[in-house]
Design a binder for these strands. Structure first.
Lengths: 144, 144
DNA sequence: CAGGCTCATTAGTTAAGCTAACGACTGTGA
DNA sequence: TCACAGTCGTTAGCTTAACTAATGAGCCTG
């Protein structure tokens, strides 16, 4: 029904631009608490993965281990992250989001989604359908 | 051909997740020079807008004016941004990307797009078409 | 034309990132 | 079995980037 032949080299800048801009907008929907972006990101990754060692979390966040030590320390102060010793390896530590940490994340995400959802509501039905299918493809791209 | 009735409240988290993740991936495609993310972002906004005062640029970047003073100072040191006095208002300053600044941006964006384009090339033709239409809608959302 | 406002900057503080170095622990090879 | 190389997390010390508060120059209105 629509034009085909979409050259990747032409689509890439368009899509990148759309994504970075929208990402900024979504992030601007500022949340309640006083968590920093860094802390929020680490907590999100941690919940996503379930449980990680500091090094693993540092790798995921693309940060050096000493940096992650500080981030985790702040999150632990607030009771959002829990540290437990590794069952067999005495050097390692297991990090996990606490109940409170997950609750804080839910709060943040809801705030963001509210803005986005209100925008989406203003679209036509078929536009939303396009976005739904696009979201699946984009997630697949991000995973690759 | 596909299911309709896409409730915004359900699409929002999906889309947000896809966008933030892909954005991370795109940012990870690290560039050549030694520009920081902050500087890069400011320079991008500046080129996009053409010319802005420090305050306007600070607003666009969601940063306080003193912070922008420093960012601009670094960009100016490298000759990527040019400062000219405001024609009528002696308090204000006009900022603009120099030729060199635009060249640096092009370089960065090309590096990012290469990664993305290679991923896009692996998709089916109709998937790319979905993304093309989605990109337009997303840009429209970001502008809103 | 005086007072209040806006603009950009300076000063000083806090957070967040890095590298280097260290202490505890693991696990392997002689 | 046990010395030693390697790993893990942390500490120490530094740089960059953000903020608020305060300052000085310039504009404009009553």
């Amino acid at each position: 029904m629509t034009a085909n032949r979409v050259p990747p080299a032409q689509l890439a800048p368009q899509l990148r631009d759309a994504i970075t801009r929208l990402n900024r907008r979504v992030r601007q929907a500022r949340p309640v608490g006083d968590l920093t972006v860094t802390q929020l990101s680490a907590l999100t990754s941690l919940r996503l993965a379930g449980a990680l060692t500091p090094r693993e979390l540092a790798d995921v966040e693309r940060v050096q281990p000493p940096t992650m030590t500080k981030i985790v320390a702040k999150l632990e102060e607030r009771g959002l992250v829990q540290r437990t010793p590794h069952p067999t390896d005495g050097r390692q530590v297991i990090l996990a989001a606490t109940e409170g940490g997950r609750a804080v994340l839910d709060q943040f995400e809801r705030a963001r989604d509210e803005w986005l959802a209100s925008r989406l509501a203003a679209l036509a039905e078929d536009e939303r359908d396009t976005l739904r299918r696009a979201a699946e493809i984009l997630q697949q791209l991000a995973r690759a």
